[in-house]
Each structure stands twice: as structure tokens, then as C-alpha cells.
Amino acid sequence: MTEQSIRPYLGRVCFVTIGATAAFDSLIRAVFEDKFVRALRSAGFSDMIIQYGANGKKLFDQLSREYEARPPVSPFCINGFHFNTKGLGAEMRAAKGKGHKAESRGIVISHAGSGSVLDALRVGVPVIVVPNPELLDDHQTQLAEALAKQDYVVHGKLDDMTGALREIDVLMWRLKDWPPVNSGVHRHAQGVEGIADEEVGYLDGSKE
């Protein structure tokens, strides 16, 4: 992340992340779709930043060329980078924008990897979670569904990204804050260190 973070964005920012481990070409294709780009533009977005992963450069370049050949949706910039080993906090914060003005509040579109979703939740930026249907195990879908049910995120589907965008613009103002407030019978607020304390014999349980 270099110039993009310094340059002030004209409007809202959409940050797309596919994670560091697995490829997710279908998500990159989905966000390049003409319909989706136009929907973003009309919702007041000026920039899309795509983290496309180690093997996504070829696809990103190809789609960028095709995008530029299309009738222009101006002003709308699409930039990309492969990954940032220092984490994606800077991009997430750029997407979050400053203040509570609707014009500056962007979104994150994330694969359903727990690390990326947690980062977005911690930064406090509205996030559309898109599970990768090509992964054999569907636990990513379960995570997206469970979080969407509790109004933390919007569960996006590859074939209906514009729908997810509409949904998040409605939900944006009532998305719940992260982390969940401890309440109810199960919350001893002891965390893992409390469990470790029990196991090794620090039984005093004193928290200073």
C-alpha cells in the first residue's frame, strides 16, 4: 500500500480481500462485473482496492484491461496489490473512512477466512463476507451465515453482489459493534488465560 493511502479518496472506498492462502478468482471476477461497478459508483464509491493474492495478478491485470476498454464509469479507480505481510489494517481503515458522514463510509468485501473477517470487525468497517464455494468444506458458509444472522456482517453471494451492496447500505447503520458484549450465563470473562491458570494451578484467580 503506497500511493493509494496518501491520496485522498474522492468518495467511498471499497476494499476487496481474498486472503493470503487460497485463490478466489470468482470473487475477483464478480467485483469487476460491469453491473457491480456501476452499482458501486451510483452508491457514491470512487475507489476499489483489490487484494488479489499471490496468484491473482494475471487475472487482475487482464480484468483491469477489460475494464478500461469498457465505456468509462468515471470517476472510478480500481487498484490492486497481491498481499501485505504487515496485515491489511491500513486498507481496512481507509475503507472505513473518517467520521460518521455517509459520503466517506466505505465497505470491505472479504472472503470468509476468519483472520480477514476478524480484522474488519475489529476495525469496525461494514463487511460483506463472501464464502468461497470451491472450498470442499462449507464451514466458511456457516461462519458467514452465523455472523449475518446476528447482524455483524452481510453474507454476500457471488451471483448477487449488487444485492449484497444494497443490503449493506441498509444495514450499515445498525451493524453491531465488535467484540460482542459479555453477557449471559456462559460468560465467565475468564478467557483462555483463566483456563490456563486453572490448569497450572494459579487458583487464586486474582486479577491484580
Binding site: 477466512g113 476468519s114 464451514h139 461462519l143
Partner: peptide
């Protein structure tokens, strides 16, 4: 268990 594991 990972936070990503909701039901299984």
C-alpha cells in the same frame, strides 16, 4: 477450536 468453526 477456530472461531471459524460454527457448527462442526
Amino acid at each position: 477450536e477456530s472461531w471459524a468453526r460454527v457448527k462442526t
